[in-house]
């Protein structure tokens, strides 16, 4: 083999190995999932386009659904976990424990808050991607429903659905009331939850078809602008993570 040909082969092999090494060093792609909050329960309703309002007392009310086209796609790499503060009663409800089977010393603690970790892997993301659909649809909604000036309005902009949801919570509250063993028994007897060694309870909920677990909301922020022509309602959509606190134990009230 000629020297020139050998040099070319060497150069090729060197380039290839450099490329392979370079590839191996690439960091894994992280899917940005910031700004999502959990729905009160996994659900097949409340898609992107749903509008809620918060009244002057902080109560959440559903307002209506925008007539818009939703985009969707499956994301295999998607993994979200989020810590939520919920009431103890809400937590028991979520894992399927009825209030009447709980020990009396725990019943008066049901309103106290505990930390729960929610996690889902792999999901179907649904979202509204085009402002030119969303803004006219909001104006059309407020033609049907009166806009209350003293309320805050929120739009569900994105949701993530999954076929599996994991709840996990440390059960130090059980020890606090001295009912560790009894609660362990209730959970094991009444739910699919699993009592872990480090005094934490976890449960994996599986659904036959994907249910919406996470949502990202935008605030419909009214504004006062002076313009050459009238506007039915003037507003901007502003991303405000965590502003719409539906919470896993706070169902929206009926209007």
């Amino acid at each position: 083999m000629e020297k020139r040909t050998k040099d070319i082969i060497r150069l090729f092999v060197l380039s290839l190995s450099l490329m392979v090494l370079g590839c191996a060093k690439h960091p894994s792609v992280e899917v940005p999932v910031e700004g999502f909050d959990a729905f009160p329960s996994a659900r097949d309703f409340d898609p992107p386009g749903k509008v809620f309002r918060k009244d002057a007392d902080g109560k959440i009310w559903p307002v209506g659904l925008l007539k818009v086209t939703t985009q969707s796609g499956h994301e295999e790499t998607l993994a979200i976990s989020k810590k939520e503060h919920v009431s103890l009663g809400g937590f028991f409800k979520s894992i399927g424990v009825a209030e009447n089977v709980l020990p009396a010393e725990l019943k008066n603690k049901l309103s106290s808050e505990i930390e729960v970790e929610l996690a889902s892997v792999s999901g179907t993301r649904e979202y509204l991607d085009d402002d030119s659909d969303v803004y006219p649809a909001i104006i059309a909604l407020f033609r049907r429903v009166p806009f209350k000036k003293d309320n805050e309005y929120y739009l569900i902009r994105e949701t993530i659905a999954s076929t599996e949801l994991t709840f996990r919570s440390k059960v130090n509250w059980a020890a606090e009331v001295g009912a560790n063993a009894e609660i362990k028994k209730i959970i094991n007897a009444n739910t699919e939850a699993h009592w872990e060694n480090e005094n934490a309870v976890s449960m994996v909920k599986k659904f036959q078809s994907p249910l919406r677990i996470w949502f990202k909301a935008e605030k419909i922020m009214p504004k006062e602008a002076l313009g050459i022509g009238p506007a039915e309602i003037q507003f901007d959509l502003v991303t405000t993570a965590g502003a719409l606190k539906l919470g896993i134990d706070k169902q929206p009230d009926n209007p």
Binding site: D131, S132, D133, V134, Y135, P136, I139, K223, E224, A225, L226, G227, I228, G229, A231, Q234
Partner: peptide, 11 residues
């Protein structure tokens, strides 16, 4: 690009 009649001075 919101597809609504906006021609105004912002706040």
């Amino acid at each position: 690009s919101r597809n609504v009649p906006i021609c105004q001075v912002a706040p």
